[in-house]
C-alpha cells in the first residue's frame, strides 16, 4: 500500500430546499490508498451517498453548494469541467448505486446498457468485441445464460439479478476506484458472498481501491481494511477494522455496534437501539451533533453542547468526540456509567 489515490479534504455539501439549507456533508476529510478497501458506515441520511455522488462529480444541479477538495491522483474534481469528469467516470472511477432499479433504464435491453458503458470509453470497439465483453462481464458477476439474457429487459430480472447487471456495468472498464453503495443489500447471502469474492478478487488482481458503503457490519467485518463512521454529515470516527469492532472510540460507533445482531442472538428479545431520532439536517444540533442522543456526554462537561469536536487521534484511530482517552477506554470496558 502506497500513495493516496483519492484525497478528500474539507468537503462540504449542502442543498437549498424550500425549508432551508440541508447540510448533508460537513467538512469531511479522508483518503484512500491504491488497493485499499475503505468502509463507510453510519446513520441513514448521514451523507454517505451524497459523498459518493460528490466524488463521482455528479452533484451539479442548481440547488447544490459544494466546497472543499476531492483529488483523484492529483486531478481536482471539485470545480472541474463536466467533460473532464465524464472521462474519468466509468473508467478510472466507477460506482455501483444503492438503488438497482433507477440506475437501469427500463426501455433498453440490459446487454445494450452494459455495452454502452464500454463503448463510451472504447469508441472504436467493434460490435462483436462489445458483445463478447458484455457476455464475459455478465458471466463474471454470475448472471446465468448470459448469451440469452443479454437481450432481456430490466423488469424481467429480480432485484438481485438487476444489481448484478449494475455491478457488471461498473466493472466493464476495470476501474481504479470502485465506489459500491450498498452493493449487496438486495442479494441473498450466497450471492452476496460471490459478489464480495468478486470485489475482493478485483482488488487483489487489479489493485482496485474500493469504497464500500453499507449498513451490514458483517460485510464490513469481512471486506474492509479501514472504516469511516459518519453521523449527520460528519466523520465521527476513522479506525482500522479490528480496532473498531473491539474498541470503538466514539459513542455513536459504540451504540451502532450494540445494535448489531448475529445469528447467535436470541429470538424476539428487544434489540438495543440508540435512544432518540437522527437530527434534522436543516438544524444540526450545536456542539457535537450526536449530543442529544449520547449516553456519555456528561463525562465531557458542557463542551459537547457548545463546541464542535474536531477529528483527532486516539491510539491508531481518529475520533471526533470530547471524551478523554481514559474515558473512552472506560467506555469500551463498559465501565463508564451512562445516563
Amino acid at each position: 500500500m502506497s500513495k493516496n489515490i483519492l484525497e478528500v479534504n474539507n468537503l462540504s455539501v449542502s442543498f437549498n430546499t424550500s425549508d432551508g439549507q440541508v447540510h448533508a456533508v460537513d467538512n469531511l476529510s479522508f483518503n484512500i490508498k491504491a488497493g485499499e478497501v475503505l468502509g463507510i458506515v453510519g446513520e441513514s441520511g448521514s451523507g454517505k451517498s451524497v459523498t459518493a455522488s460528490a466524488i463521482m462529480g455528479l452533484l451539479t444541479s442548481g440547488n447544490v453548494n459544494l466546497s472543499g477538495s476531492i483529488k483523484l491522483n492529483d486531478f481536482e474534481i471539485v470545480g472541474a469541467k463536466d467533460s473532464e469528469v465524464r472521462k474519468l467516470r466509468g473508467s478510472d472511477i466507477a460506482m455501483v448505486f444503492q438503488d438497482p432499479l433507477s440506475s437501469l433504464n427500463p426501455y433498453y435491453k440490459i446487454g445494450v446498457q452494459i455495452g454502452e458503458a464500454y463503448e463510451t470509453h472504447h469508441p472504436d470497439a467493434s460490435k462483436a468485441e462489445v458483445r463478447n465483453k458484455v457476455i464475459e462481464v455478465m458471466k463474471k458477476v454470475g448472471i446465468p445464460e448470459a448469451e440469452r439474457r443479454i437481450d432481456s429487459y430490466p423488469h424481467e430480472f429480480s432485484g438481485g439479478m438487476r444489481q448484478r447487471v449494475v455491478i457488471a456495468i461498473a466493472l466493464i472498464n476495470d476501474p481504479k476506484i470502485l465506489i459500491a453503495d450498498e452493493p449487496t443489500t438486495a442479494l441473498d447471502v450466497t450471492v452476496q458472498a460471490q459478489i464480495l469474492d468478486l470485489m475482493r478478487d478485483l482488488q487483489k488482481t487489479s489493485n482496485t481501491s474500493i469504497i464500500l458503503i453499507t449498513h451490514d457490519l458483517g460485510v464490513v467485518a469481512e471486506m474492509v481494511d479501514r472504516v469511516l463512521v459518519m453521523y449527520a454529515g460528519r466523520a465521527v470516527e476513522v479506525s482500522d477494522i479490528k480496532a473498531i469492532f473491539s474498541a470503538p472510540i466514539h459513542p455513536y460507533t459504540k451504540g451502532l455496534l450494540n445494535a448489531v445482531r448475529s445469528l447467535d442472538s436470541a429470538i424476539r428479545e428487544k434489540l438495543a437501539t440508540i435512544p432518540g431520532t437522527p437530527p434534522s439536517l436543516l438544524n444540526i444540533p450545536q456542539g457535537c451533533a450526536f449530543n442529544p442522543r449520547c449516553s456519555y456526554k456528561q463525562w465531557a462537561g458542557d463542551k459537547c453542547l457548545v463546541q464542535k469536536p474536531e477529528l483527532h487521534e486516539i491510539g491508531n484511530g481518529l475520533t471526533a468526540c470530547h471524551l478523554s482517552k481514559t474515558d473512552i477506554e472506560r467506555m469500551n470496558k463498559d465501565e463508564l456509567p451512562v445516563v
Binding site: 443489500t185 457490519l217 445494535a259 437501539t273
Partner: peptide, 13 residues
Amino acid sequence: SALDVSIQAQILN
C-alpha cells in the same frame, strides 16, 4: 435492509 442497524433495531422493535 436500507436502514442502519440502530434504526433497523428501532423499526424491528
